[in-house]
């Protein structure tokens, strides 16, 4: 099975080209990190994979679990097992976290032709996963991200990931705005979730996050494409000398 294969992907927004013959292959169970200077197209890549309709796909192919990802709409991609942890999770006052997450997991289960999770089982699952992330029960009674601190928003993204159990999780600069303690909690959450069936694409500016997560591959991205790939040592090189040498 081809897990994720992006082949010569070209993407633009309002006529401006952002991704430029972008290629990457991620296999089941692998953790990939993409680093790159501001404006190189990292967040665009994350959003295009999640199905954001603001972008125009000019050409290229994206195969996810043997299916053409570009044929699927936003929710179909999520139901198929793709999860994007947002850089700036949006506040939605009035939409309560618990019923929203239950509706999310049930839409996925329905798509997989599995029985929906009942209220009691879901409450147990949510409580267990929230406790592991140090999220209080009170927080689960609130509206989505409303009044959350930066760290709380990111922890809540990890909670959603742990509930929805995606095959591919994309983290778009999850470390931005996090202090050291919050970063540790978030990365521990990610590490707890890792196994041989789950894959990750981590987008970041900093080596610190990768020190906690230990990616299998690190890629450097510039001007909409990957220009160099390697292991964790590549992150250390960037930390030391910046992107000037790439």
């Amino acid at each position: 099975m081809i897990f994720l294969n992006i082949n010569n992907l070209n993407v633009s927004i309002e006529g401006k080209k952002i991704l430029n013959d972008f290629n990457i292959q991620i296999n089941e169970g692998e953790v990939h990190a993409i680093m790159g200077p501001n404006g190189c197209g990292k967040s665009t890549l994350a959003n295009v994979l999640a199905g954001n309709e603001d972008y125009e796909i000019n050409s290229g192919k994206v195969i996810f679990k043997d299916e053409d990802l570009l044929d699927l709409n936003i929710e179909e991609r999520a139901q198929k097992g793709l999860f994007l942890a947002f850089q700036y999770p949006v506040e939605i006052p009035g939409v309560n976290i618990t019923p929203f997450l239950q509706a999310s997991i049930n839409s996925k289960l329905k798509n997989e032709k599995k029985p929906e999770i009942d209220n009691i089982s879901f409450a147990k699952l949510l409580k267990k996963n929230a406790e592991e992330l140090g999220i209080s029960i009170d927080m689960l009674k609130r509206s989505i991200n409303t009044g959350f601190s930066g760290g709380e928003k990111k922890r809540y993204e990890i909670l959603q990931m742990s509930i929805l159990n995606p095959a591919l999780s994309i983290f778009d600069e999850t470390d931005s705005g996090l202090d050291v303690d919050a970063l540790r909690v978030v990365t521990e959450g990610i590490n707890r979730f890792k196994d041989s069936k789950k894959s990750f694409l981590i987008i970041t500016h900093y080596q610190k996050l990768l020190d906690y997560i230990h990616p299998n591959y690190v890629h450097v991205m510039r001007e909409g494409r990957i220009i160099k790939s390697g292991d964790i040592s590549l992150a250390a090189e960037i930390e030391k000398s910046g992107y000037q040498n790439f």
Binding site: G51, N73, I74, F86, K108
Partner: peptide, 18 residues
């Protein structure tokens, strides 16, 4: 907000209702 809800698997119509 619509994009966020849909990115969690909720279809557009249901997300709009939420």
């Amino acid at each position: 907000a619509l994009y966020y809800l849909r990115s969690r698997g909720i279809n557009k119509n249901e997300a709009m209702k939420m």
